[in-house]
Computed example of a mutant assay.
Amino acid sequence: MGDGESEDTGTTLPRRQLGRLLREERSATGMNLEQAAALVQWSRPTLSRLERGETARIRLTDVLALCEAYGMSAETTAVARGYAEQVPAKTWWHGYGDLIPVWANVYVGLESSATVLTIFQPLVMHGLLQTTDYARSLDRLFFRDHTEAELDRRIQIRSQRQHALTRAHEPTRTLVVLHESVLRTVVGDPHIMSAQCRHVADISTHDNIDLRVMPFRAGAPLGAAVPPFTIMDFARVTPGKRQQEPSQVYCEGYAGSAYLEKRTDVLLFRQAFQKLQEESLDARSSRDLVREIARRHESER
């Protein structure tokens, strides 16, 4: 069982995201807690609890009053409103077209602060493992209206995310199960797939990465279709530090993404991953298969 999973906390992801946003906006104004609280006729402890995501009840009018006091832009105020309207949710569905815009990407912030990532991908390569050419091939299809400059920016962000796996100091511990179909489904062309498979094989040699391939012959070990998911675990809280982020499950879909943090949900996905990993090849055999598939793609050029 991962850190932050011993019990369900009283806070929620939208509530914590709202608190972070308001804290950052207050800091940008140069105001301390006392000064900011006075502007909206609050006490310092009340505002402090809101910024920590620990307020039991949040009123939208209070949030909007803070946004006005901080001089927040209409766009950022819309993000705060979106969080405020979702604060009770233990399971939060974040649609791509809802009030939280793409630039306020919740997942990227969580992923970058996670100490352990547990990933299952059944069809396409996870963003942390994608080559530039593979990523561009996917993005050109999904973001059809984007300019090349916008696609370049997305790929740059993805590359920055990937540094967490290979940095010299405390790289993110990463457990991955890829279905064999991820490696055989041609994204772009065989040349791109060959390079992508070689990249996966190479990065799987890092000590912090445990990558397994679930072969076609494993069938459906859970008896049901499983969506792509990532379990994010965070460092243990230490005395004097802010409350730790509880473990999160991120399930990605075509129309949006679900964030789950209830203990029972996290445990369910942990058990699912364990079963998927048990039905996968071991690390060495997985690497051998990835390289074999890379050679097959190369021969199809």
Results as ranks from 00 to 15, higher is better:
residue 289 L to A: 04
residue 209 I to Q: 01
residue 206 H to V: 03
residue 259 Y to K: 03
residue 157 I to T: 04
residue 16 R to H: 00
residue 261 E to D: 14
residue 235 A to S: 15
residue 224 A to R: 15
residue 202 D to A: 11
residue 17 Q to V: 01
residue 203 I to F: 09
residue 147 T to P: 04
residue 26 R to V: 00
residue 295 R to S: 13
residue 79 V to K: 02
residue 195 A to Q: 11
residue 261 E to Y: 01
residue 26 R to I: 01
residue 91 T to M: 06
residue 221 P to C: 14
residue 1 M to Y: 10
residue 186 V to S: 06
residue 42 W to V: 03
residue 113 S to K: 13
residue 130 Q to G: 10
residue 66 L to S: 08
residue 278 E to T: 10
residue 226 V to K: 15
residue 22 L to S: 06
residue 126 H to G: 13
residue 139 D to Q: 00
residue 104 A to G: 04
residue 130 Q to H: 08
residue 182 V to T: 02
residue 148 E to V: 12
residue 72 M to D: 02
residue 246 P to K: 06
residue 94 H to D: 15
residue 183 L to T: 02
residue 82 G to N: 02
residue 39 L to D: 04
residue 82 G to W: 00
residue 275 K to V: 15
residue 201 A to N: 03
residue 238 T to K: 14
residue 112 S to L: 14
residue 232 M to G: 09
residue 41 Q to F: 06
residue 154 R to E: 11
residue 19 G to S: 07
residue 295 R to Y: 08
residue 255 A to Q: 01
residue 4 G to K: 04
residue 255 A to H: 03
residue 132 T to Y: 05
residue 4 G to I: 08
residue 52 R to L: 13
residue 183 L to D: 05
residue 19 G to P: 07
residue 16 R to A: 01
residue 131 T to G: 12
residue 275 K to Q: 14
residue 299 S to I: 00
residue 194 S to Q: 08
residue 251 C to M: 12
residue 91 T to K: 03
residue 70 Y to G: 08
residue 11 T to L: 03
residue 188 G to D: 06
residue 172 T to H: 01
residue 155 I to C: 04
residue 175 L to W: 07
residue 245 E to L: 11
residue 239 P to A: 15
residue 164 A to D: 04
residue 70 Y to V: 10
residue 283 A to D: 12
residue 129 L to P: 10
residue 126 H to D: 15
residue 98 D to K: 01
residue 132 T to N: 05
residue 211 L to S: 02
residue 270 R to M: 08
residue 56 A to H: 10
residue 85 E to R: 03
residue 56 A to N: 13
residue 197 C to D: 11
residue 125 M to K: 02
residue 32 N to K: 04
residue 30 G to E: 07
residue 160 Q to Y: 01
residue 297 H to Q: 09
residue 190 P to M: 04
residue 7 E to K: 05
residue 170 E to D: 14
residue 217 R to D: 15
residue 235 A to Q: 15
residue 300 E to H: 12
residue 256 G to Y: 00
residue 242 R to P: 12
residue 111 E to M: 12
residue 76 T to Q: 10
residue 179 H to P: 03
residue 40 V to Y: 06
residue 122 P to W: 09
residue 134 Y to W: 07
residue 93 W to R: 12
residue 59 R to L: 04
residue 1 M to Q: 09
residue 72 M to Q: 03
residue 233 D to T: 14
residue 11 T to Y: 01
residue 254 Y to H: 06
residue 33 L to N: 11
residue 120 F to T: 06
residue 271 Q to Y: 04
residue 80 A to Y: 02
residue 62 D to H: 13
residue 30 G to H: 03
residue 130 Q to N: 10
residue 230 T to K: 06
residue 15 R to W: 01
residue 8 D to V: 00
residue 154 R to G: 03
residue 200 V to S: 05
residue 1 M to S: 12
residue 235 A to M: 13
residue 127 G to W: 10
residue 278 E to S: 11
residue 129 L to R: 05
residue 181 S to N: 07
residue 289 L to H: 04
